[in-house]
């Protein structure tokens, strides 16, 4: 199939950036979206044009590196699919496709479609961990955890930290990401000990980074390739309320 692409090109963080039009010729419907971009880039290199820079790593939908907004939707139109796992069969010949980077003050563009997501790492560094070494895997019956808690923690832990929630949010809020991390720990005994300090520390860091505020649009949930539910945002709000009502510790 043949497609027309409008791609965001930006030399560096200081460049203003603009949309450029490129044809994508002879694209196989079996290709992934990123493979389609690889083909376009080979064409561009042959023409002596700087290839389009985009983030990617595993191309298996598990690493959280790929980050393209396709036709206004982070990771494209398919539900529960990262852009690397989106196949060209979901498009038809002659389609016009807009490709843009994650748009957020907290995610400044480095080049073209590549953004700096270290804000997410700093939120993790603020509280997304358990302070003591919990050792190896304990015996299954050593620390009883209810099935519900184990499942809920696992659902939250499915977050790959790609930042699509931020890209999808009308306010560029990072709440779904932070909520997933806060909930993942708060549901397990090892994480519960520091739950109160953690939620405060991570939210404070989230605010410092310049993410927007949650207005309950629910766009994040729709864009999340791991289908993290906004019920975790409610969970984080509960954790935060509990923490701010508790006597201050440390």
């Amino acid at each position: 199939m043949n497609l027309t692409l409008y791609v965001w090109r930006q030399k560096n963080a200081d460049d203003k950036g603009r949309m450029e039009k490129y044809p994508a010729k002879n694209i196989s419907s079996h290709m992934s979206f990123l493979e389609m971009l690889d083909v376009v880039n080979e064409d561009l290199i042959e023409q002596g044009v700087e290839p389009i820079a985009f983030d990617h790593d595993c191309r298996e939908g598990i690493c959280g590196m790929c980050s393209l907004v396709v036709n206004g939707r982070p990771h494209g139109p398919e539900k529960a699919t990262t852009i690397c796992q989106l196949h060209m069969r979901h498009f038809s010949d002659g389609d016009v496709i807009y490709i843009e980077p994650w748009r957020a003050k907290a995610f400044p563009v480095i080049k073209d479609l590549v953004v700096d997501r270290s804000a997410i790492d700093r939120i993790m560094a603020a509280g997304g961990f358990v302070s003591i070494n919990t050792g190896g895997v304990p015996d299954a019956n050593a620390i009883p955890i209810s099935k519900t808690d184990a499942d809920t923690a696992m659902d939250a832990a499915a977050c790959i930290g790609c930042g699509a929630c931020v890209a999808a949010c009308k306010n560029a809020s990072g709440m779904l990401f932070v909520a997933a991390k806060v909930s993942q720990f708060a549901h397990l005994p090892q994480g519960k000990v520091e739950a109160s300090q953690r939620v405060r520390a991570m939210i404070d860091q989230m605010d410092i980074e310049g993410f927007g505020n949650c207005t309950n649009f629910q766009e994040c949930e729709a864009a999340c390739p791991k289908e993290i539910s906004i019920k975790f945002i409610a969970k984080m709000n509960r954790e935060y309320l509990k923490s701010s009502m508790a006597p201050t510790k440390g």
Binding site: G17, G72, R103, A106, A222
Partner: peptide, 17 residues
């Protein structure tokens, strides 16, 4: 919230909101 997205999307869509 406005300041959190200084550069707007060229193509903006609403899915769930």
């Amino acid at each position: 919230n406005r300041a959190s997205r200084p550069v707007k999307y060229v193509k903006e869509v609403n899915v769930e909101s």
